[in-house]
Computed example of a mutant assay.
Amino acid sequence: MRNANTSRYQIRKNSGELATFSAEKLRRSLLKSGAGVEVAENVLREVSRELYDGITTREIYRKAFNLLHGHGSHFACRYSLKKVIYEMGPSGFPFEKLVGYIFQKKNYKVQWNQVLQGRCVTHEVDLVLEKDRKTAFVECKFHSEEGRNCDVKVPLYIHSRFEDISQRSGAQKYSGWVVTNTRFTLDALEYGNCVGLSLLSWDYPKAKGLKDLADQFKIYPITVSSLLSAEEKQSLLEKGHVLASEILQYPELLQKEKISTERKERIIKELQKIMHHENGKN
């Protein structure tokens, strides 16, 4: 499979742009699902047989997801992490909570939705972080639709807000973060890095992006379950339950959703497999 010439195919991204198909990129995503090398290579081989110029990334995802699901729903669920984060909407608050939990795993003290006085006006800040006597502000930009990236206007606006807060009388100098579940455009990255903002997107910084941190700390949203209905997921999110680990810790949450004992056992078993894994092993 490694010698197959799949790089000749042009695929269409969600943004409408064309890109060269990367077998290695798909292989890495498959392995990150927890599937072993043999399963990953088999799925990659089957997907590669159905490639054609102009195939969409969504179609490639669907084919790979269905093939992985045949080897185990928990593999497919982890593979679909980007998609299930989109499903946390339409409100951005569940995503803000998920991001906060990731920072907690990085030993930050986290406060959500703080109203802070700036030099000119007051500002609502998604997260305020404290660590080693240093304070940081975090603004989360959640998109519920694929293909919507954060352009330069996002860090421009957020930087101006953080500057207003830091310039108020007697205020110390704060650091700032912008976090998104999609990607930053090139000019957004250039501007953010130039003014000293820390940027975190789905795959930026390389190997330390949102997807990497979620896997590292096993911070998976409730929407990762393939056995909960869309209505059940939304109900749990609206009640403030964001993480899959909450269901494992408090199984009674499923009873409150009037989920039968048989279904509850299946859901818990699936989530246990999703949570307790190492990449490439299961």
Rank of each mutant, 00 (worst) to 15 (best):
L227K: 14
Q255F: 06
K218D: 06
A244F: 04
Y220L: 07
E232F: 01
L227N: 11
S229Q: 04
L199S: 06
K256M: 08
K258Q: 14
E252H: 14
Y204C: 05
F217R: 12
G209E: 02
E252S: 14
L253A: 12
L248H: 13
S198T: 04
S225N: 06
S245G: 10
L227F: 05
A230W: 01
K233R: 15
A214P: 00
K256G: 01
S229C: 03
K258S: 14
P205H: 07
P205Q: 07
F217P: 07
E231S: 11
L248W: 11
E252M: 12
L243F: 08
D203H: 04
K206N: 04
Y220I: 05
L213K: 11
Y220Q: 09
L200W: 08
K239A: 09
Y204A: 07
K208H: 11
S226F: 05
Q234T: 02
A214Y: 00
P251E: 10
T261L: 14
K256Y: 04
Q216M: 09
K208W: 00
E231M: 04
F217E: 07
S245C: 07
I222C: 08
S245E: 15
I259W: 08
S226N: 14
K218H: 13
A214C: 15
S245V: 09
T223R: 07
S260W: 01
Y220W: 08
K239I: 00
I259V: 13
W202V: 00
V242K: 09
Q255E: 15
E232M: 03
S245N: 13
S225C: 08
Y204H: 13
I222V: 15
E238R: 13
H241E: 07
V224S: 13
Y220P: 12
D212I: 00
L228Y: 03
G209K: 05
E257Y: 01
K208C: 02
V224F: 02
D212Q: 11
S198N: 15
L200T: 03
E232C: 02
Y250H: 15
K218Q: 12
A244H: 09
A230T: 07
Q255G: 14
A207H: 10
E252A: 10
Y250V: 12
H241Q: 06
F217C: 09
L236T: 07
L254T: 10
Y250M: 12
H241P: 00
L213C: 04
G209Y: 02
E238D: 14
E252T: 10
L243W: 04
P251I: 09
S225T: 05
A207D: 12
T261D: 12
L213D: 03
I219C: 14
K211C: 02
L248T: 12
L254M: 09
S245A: 15
I259F: 06
Q216N: 07
I259G: 10
I259N: 09
Q234V: 00
P221D: 06
F217D: 06
S235L: 05
L227A: 08
K239H: 11
E257F: 01
E238F: 02
S198Y: 03
L199W: 02
K206S: 09
L213Y: 03
Y250S: 15
S235F: 00
S260K: 12
E231L: 06
D203N: 12
Q249K: 15
